[in-house]
Design a binder for these strands. Structure first.
Lengths: 403, 403
DNA sequence: GGAGTGTTTATAAAATATTTTAAAACTTCT
DNA sequence: AGAAGTTTTAAAATATTTTATAAACACTCC
C-alpha cells in the first residue's frame, strides 16, 4: 500500500468518524474521488477490520445504499479540556463514546511552576490506567484558554514551557501525537463537525464564559488567522468606558459583558440596596455566584434578568459587527453562559435589530448550543481527527491500519 | 483533449496571467501536479501559440529554469469600474496592458430608469469599436459600489434589473461571460493577485472613499461571506453618536470617517471661523472639496491635517477590531483617500497602539496601496481570470484554446 | 582556473492511480 | 409488470506520478 492510498483511507476514516455512518456514494462525493475507487478502498478497510457494514439506508428512489461506519474500538482519542483551575481528561472511541471515566485534575494554569510537566505526567498515567495500548490511540487533543498558537503548539498566556513547546513536551512524555488549540476554537470545531453548525459554511460560535470567546467557521472550516489568534472577541475596543480590562486596555467588550463583570455588578448592586431574591453572593466563589444569578434569572428575578440582558445586549453589539464584516449564516451561543439558554437570546436579537442592516441580518439563524459542557471535549477529540488525514506518518503508530 | 486536461491548461494560463512569468517547476508546485505532467501541458500550450518562452531566470544553485509567459494578445479582458456617477471601461491584454483607450460613461447609478440597459449597450458598442473579435475576449469584469451578491449577479443597492440579474442581462446583450463584485472586494483582489498582498495569506484592504469599504483576504483568497456581503465595514456600529447614517442606523463607522463627513466638517468648521488655508469649499462638489482638503493637508495646513487625523484614528479603531477578530498579517490602505498616502498612516497606527493587544498587532504590516486608481480596474480583470479555470465551458468560445 | 560536489531543471520510459464505461442488481413509482 | 432511478461491480481506458538519467549551473577546494 502506498502513502497516497493510506492517506486516502485515513481521509475516509475521518469522514466516517465525523458523520458516523456513510454510504460509498457519500464518501465518494465528500472526497471527490470516483465511486469505484472509493469502493475499492472501502473494501480494503473492511478487510482490515477498520470499517463495518451498518445496515442499509432509506432509498432515495433507487437501490438502497449499503452504509458503513467505523468499528468503534479500532482507535481512541484522548480529550483534554482545561480551564483556569480544573482539567478534564477522557478517552473517546470512534463513536464519540467515553471509554472509562472522565478524570479531573486540579491544575492552576496561572501557576507558572511545574504545571506543564504535571499535566504531561498525569496524561501518561491516565492512558496507562485506561489499559488501552498506545498504538490504538490516535492522539491527544487539548483545549485551553489563552493566546494559543496552534501551529507552534504554544500558549502565550499559560503553561510556559521554557524553550520547548507544550505540544512537543507532551509528545515526548507520552509518545503520542498532540494537538492544542484555544477553547473557543474547539467549541466552534465541535459545533461545525458534530453540532449545530454541521453543513454550514459560515458560522460564528460565541463562547460566553469568564471572557467572551469566539470561534470562526469560514468557508466550511475553522478559521484561525495568521498566528492562530483569530477570535479574540473579548478584547475588541467597543466601549468608551474607563474600565481597565485585565489585558491592560480600556473599553474592551469583556469589561461590560463577561460573567465576572455580571457577578461583580450583582454584588455591588445588592450592596447598594437593589431589590432581588439573590442572596449571599461572594467575590471569592464566582462560579457559585454566577450559578445563583442564573437560577434567579431563570425564575424571573427582575434584577438578575436585567444584569444578564445588559451584558447580552452588548454582546449583541459585538455580534452585529461580526455580521457586517463576515456575513455569516448562523450565530451559535455556547459556553457556561449559554447553559442558561434563552435569556441571552432576546437581548442579542434586539441589538442585532438595532445595529444591523436588515438585508445582511435577515436570514441569520441565532441559536443556543445543544452540546453544553461536552462541546470543548468533543472539540478536542475533533481536533485530533481533523488532522488525521494529513498527520506526519512518523508520528503515528504503524499498527493502526494493519491491526 | 479531454475536459480535464483543458481545465488544467486553463489553470496554468491563470497562473501565468497573475504571475506574468513562471518556470515549469513553479507551475508544477502551484498546481500540485508533477513536473513531467505540467511540462507536457506546457508544451501543448506552446504548440497552440498560447504560451511563449521568455528567457531564463537566475539559477538558485542549479540549472537555470526556462521561463514561460502568456502571449499577450491571445486573449483579452474587459474591465468595468463604476462609481456612483462615472463608469470607466477598458480592455486589458494578458500582460495587463490597456488595448486602446479607457472610455468614460456618465451613468448615474441611483437613477433607477434604464441605466442597466444603457451600460449593456455601451459595453457591446465599446467591444465592437475596439475591433477585437468576441471570441478573443475571456469575459467582462465589473466592479460597483453597493450590496452586491456576486453569486446571483445582483446589486441590491443599484442597477435593479427587474426579474433578470445584472450579470445575465449583460451576458445576453454582449454574448460574453460576465462577473460582478463589490468595488472594495475587487480592490482587495487586485492587491492579492497583483499588488501589496501577493503571497499573503490574511490581509485586510481598507477602501477609503465616500464610504469605508473593506476587502478581506483570508486563507489566501478573497472572502465574500454567505451572500457576498462580507466587508460591510462602513456600517459597523462603533459610535454612540446620534448621527443618522444613510443606511438608516446610528453610530456607523461611516458617520465619523468617510470623505463626505470630512468635507462637511471642514465646511462647517470654516464657517465657524476656524483658521485654515482652505477656501471656497462647497457642498455640491464634494470631489473638488475633498481634493482641496487633501492638498491643504499635504502642505501642512493644521486644520486639514486635524480633520483627516480624526477620521483616520476612528478608522484605526475599526481596524483594531478586525485585527482582534481575524488576526491578519497585513493592512492595506487603498481607494481615493489613500492617494494622500501617509497622512492616514500615523493616526491609524496610533489607534492600533492604543486598542490592540500588543502580541496580536506586533507583526502586522500597515501600508498604503501602490495601485491607486488602477486597483479597481485590475481587480475587475482579475475577477474574470480568477474564474477562468472553472468557468462553465459553454460560456466560453471554443476558439480561445485552439486559435 | 579547472575538477569535484551538490542542486536544480528537463525529458523519456515505466509503473501506478484514477476515472470512465458498461452492465448488473436492487428499489421505487406508476 | 415495466420504466426510471440508484447503487454496486468488473473491465477498459486514461491520467498522473514515479523513477531514472541527462543536462545545466553554482560553489568550494585545491
Amino acid at each position: 500500500m502506498t502513502e497516497k492510498q493510506r492517506l486516502y483511507k485515513q481521509s475516509l476514516m475521518k469522514h466516517l468518524y465525523f458523520k458516523r455512518e456513510l454510504s460509498c456514494a457519500d464518501l465518494s462525493s465528500y472526497t471527490d474521488k470516483s465511486l469505484p475507487y472509493t469502493a475499492k478502498a472501502l473494501a480494503e478497510l473492511m478487510e482490515e477490520g477498520v470499517v463495518v457494514e451498518s445496515g442499509h439506508a432509506h432509498s432515495t428512489g433507487g437501490r438502497r445504499p449499503q452504509m458503513y461506519s467505523l468499528k468503534p474500538d479500532i482507535m481512541f482519542v484522548v480529550t483534554v479540556a482545561m480551564d483556569q483551575f480544573i482539567t478534564h481528561v477522557g478517552i473517546l472511541d470512534m463513536h464519540n463514546q467515553y471509554v472509562g471515566e472522565v478524570e479531573k485534575l486540579e491544575l492552576d494554569l496561572s501557576d507558572q511552576n511545574d504545571s506543564l510537566n504535571q499535566l504531561a505526567q498525569f496524561l501518561d498515567g491516565f492512558i496507562t490506567r485506561s489499559g488501552i495500548p498506545k498504538e490504538k490511540i490516535a492522539g491527544i487533543g487539548i483545549g485551553m484558554p489563552g493566546f494559543v498558537d496552534a501551529t507552534k503548539g504554544i500558549n502565550y498566556t499559560f503553561l510556559q514551557a521554557g524553550n520547548d513547546s507544550i505540544v512537543s513536551h507532551i509528545e515526548k512524555v507520552t509518545g503520542l501525537p498532540v494537538q492544542i488549540d484555544n477553547d473557543s476554537s474547539l467549541i466552534a470545531l465541535a459545533e461545525l463537525r458534530l453540532g449545530a453548525a454541521r453543513e454550514k459554511k459560515n458560522a460564528m460560535v460565541v463562547n460566553i464564559g469568564w471572557g467572551i470567546g469566539l470561534g470562526l467557521v469560514l468557508n466550511g472550516s475553522l478559521f484561525r488567522g495568521t498566528n492562530g489568534f483569530a477570535g479574540e472577541f473579548s478584547h475588541i475596543p467597543l466601549f468608551t468606558n474607563d474600565k481597565i480590562c485585565n489585558c491592560g486596555k480600556m473599553g474592551c467588550l469583556e469589561t461590560e459583558t463577561s460573567l465576572l463583570v455580571i457577578a461583580e455588578k450583582a454584588i455591588s448592586g445588592l450592596n447598594a440596596g437593589r431589590a432581588s431574591s439573590m442572596k449571599n453572593l461572594s467575590h471569592n466563589k464566582v462560579e457559585d455566584t454566577f450559578r445563583v444569578i442564573m437560577d434567579a434569572a431563570n425564575k424571573g428575578d427582575k434584577y438578575a434578568v436585567e444584569l444578564i440582558s445588559q451584558a447580552a445586549y452588548n454582546i449583541g453589539r459585538g455580534v452585529a459587527i461580526l455580521i457586517h464584516v463576515l456575513n455569516p449564516e448562523q450565530i451559535v451561543l455556547s459556553g457556561r453562559g449559554a447553559l442558561a439558554g434563552k435569556i441571552w437570546l432576546a437581548p442579542i436579537q434586539q441589538a442585532l435589530n438595532e445595529h444591523c442592516i436588515p438585508r445582511i441580518a435577515e436570514n441569520i439563524e441565532i441559536m443556543v448550543s445543544q452540546l453544553g459542557y461536552e462541546a470543548e471535549r468533543l472539540g478536542a477529540a475533533a481536533l485530533v481527527m481533523e488532522h488525521f488525514d494529513n498527520i506526519r506518518p512518523q508520528r503515528r503508530s504503524h499498527k493502526l491500519l494493519t491491526a
